[in-house]
Amino acid sequence: MFLTALALSLTPAPCRTYDAALPPQLRGWPRAGRTLDTGHAVTLNAGRDHSLATTVRIRKAGTFGVALDQSGWIDVARGRGKPLRFSSEAHGPRCSTIQKIVRYRLQPGTYRVSVSRLKGTRARLMLVRY
């Protein structure tokens, strides 16, 4: 009985709203943009193979994340090179529609962001600077 009460007290309360209390670097997630960048999210159509690709230009070196609204495989490559090794991978914040964030250490330049193994035919992404 005690263990059941303890387990119930540790269960998080259900979310009443989503994307309302995002950390500063993710506050642009609810805003719609036309390109993958910081400050807003972009919704892209996936191909028949449930994958998509887009480019992003990094102006200043740093750690950047690619946030995704569903499960999927996120790769970042410089130009047409092989995918870079990511520095970390995590779930999005609680009570958000962000399902996954993969972080990379990037230098200035143009990168190709590829997302595969998507569940749907559209995906919402955002570039996040840390």
Rank of each mutant, 00 (worst) to 15 (best):
T38D: 05
G47C: 06
T35M: 14
S51I: 11
T63I: 15
I58P: 00
V56Q: 05
T35Q: 15
G47I: 04
H40Y: 11
V56H: 06
T54E: 14
G62M: 01
H50F: 11
G47Q: 05
S51F: 14
T54L: 08
V42T: 07
L44Y: 04
G62R: 02
L52D: 06
A61E: 05
L36W: 09
T35S: 14
T38V: 12
T55F: 10
T63S: 15
G65H: 04
N45S: 14
A41E: 08
L44T: 01
A46K: 04
T43S: 14
S51D: 15
N45L: 13
A53V: 13
K60R: 10
T54S: 13
D37T: 09
T54M: 13
A61Y: 07
A61W: 05
L52F: 08
A53I: 11
G62V: 00
R59M: 01
R57D: 00
S51G: 15
H50M: 08
T38R: 07
T63H: 15
L52V: 13
V56R: 06
H40Q: 09
V56E: 03
A61P: 12
V56G: 02
G47W: 01
A41Y: 11
T55P: 08
G65D: 03
A53K: 10
I58V: 11
R48G: 12
G39I: 02
H50G: 03
V42D: 05
A41W: 10
T43R: 14
G47Y: 01
R48V: 09
T43W: 11
R59D: 02
L36R: 07
F64P: 01
H40T: 06
T55E: 14
R59K: 12
A46Y: 06
A41T: 13
R59T: 04
G65E: 06
L36K: 05
L52Q: 07
K60D: 00
G47H: 04
A41F: 08
N45K: 13
G65Q: 06
K60V: 01
H40L: 04
K60P: 00
I58E: 00
L36V: 10
D49A: 13
L36H: 08
N45H: 12
R57N: 04
V56S: 03
R48D: 08
